[in-house]
Amino acid sequence: MRKMRTSLRPWRAAATALATVLLVGSVAACGNSDTGGDAGSGSDKLVLGFSQVGAESGWRTANTTSIKEAAAEAGIELKFDDAQQKQENQIKAIRNYIQQKVDVIAFSPVVESGWDTVLKEAKDAGIPVILTDRAVDSADKSLYKTFLGSDFVKEGRLSGEWLVENKKSATGPVNIVELQGTTGSAPANDRKKGFAEAIAANPNLKIVASQSGDFTRAGGKQVMEQFLRANPKIDVLFAHNDDMGLGALEAITAAGKTPGKDITIITIDAVKDGMQALADGKFNFIAECSPLLGPQLMDLAKKVHAGEEVPPRIETEETTFTPEQAKEALPNRKY
């Protein structure tokens, strides 16, 4: 054994080295995207440096596409960097943008804290910063011009308000079950809060069960199965995202009930599969959480570059969908 081990050692070292090289190489290759160009040289085009969180979901991919397309359409030169979910990559990208003297910097912060230093560098260089999708917790609000993103509480409230309107003729109690997102995440907390506030308007509306389905289809399905067993009368399902609602659909069908009729289903997000279910009448209502903030971002970039005042908090243009509206919107749905 010992002898064999010794003879294997060079192999092992080589393999470890190779694995390390591969890992490091792949990270480096992904991390360095088109940030190297010479910004603002000659052309009078507005130059926007954007640092994206990563590409963790279809929602995020749609977000990236929207920004790239809107930039091309608005005649803005976009410097795009994918941070691979790492704050240090984002800080590096922002410093790059500062060195290249871009006109405006925008980014979706990976985490909330730790941005003061780099934001101050941008401010000192006289480059305005726009936050998209996620906020930072800097006490000094002058470090960035504005925060453009969705209002999760509002999404929950819109869902609740639709339900109150829809069930206003109900005389008896209306039993609601809720599929929460990942426990502790901002969208889950805020959507729950907004929904609860809105349905308080009608005391007949009662949440009888609420569990986390982790924003996944499998989670939504598994939890819904038990909801159906434990509660013989469920009138409404409120899911914090489309995917959990889609998983729950299967559980409802397997239980011999008709989704959309026996159980009213409300979800949030409006991704393509969710919109399809809505158009098919399996969902009843979706409050949109749109990743398509590109055009708004380009508008803002132009405004802050021109020195115009912008409000410190701007909500993404979002809407709500009923089955009829979903049928219309579906052919043009990008994500």
Partner: peptide, 14 residues
């Protein structure tokens, strides 16, 4: 796992 859902134990304590 199923018990947690069936007994409706809150996600924070589950």
């Amino acid at each position: 796992t199923t018990s947690v859902y069936a007994m409706n134990i809150s996600p924070q304590t589950s």
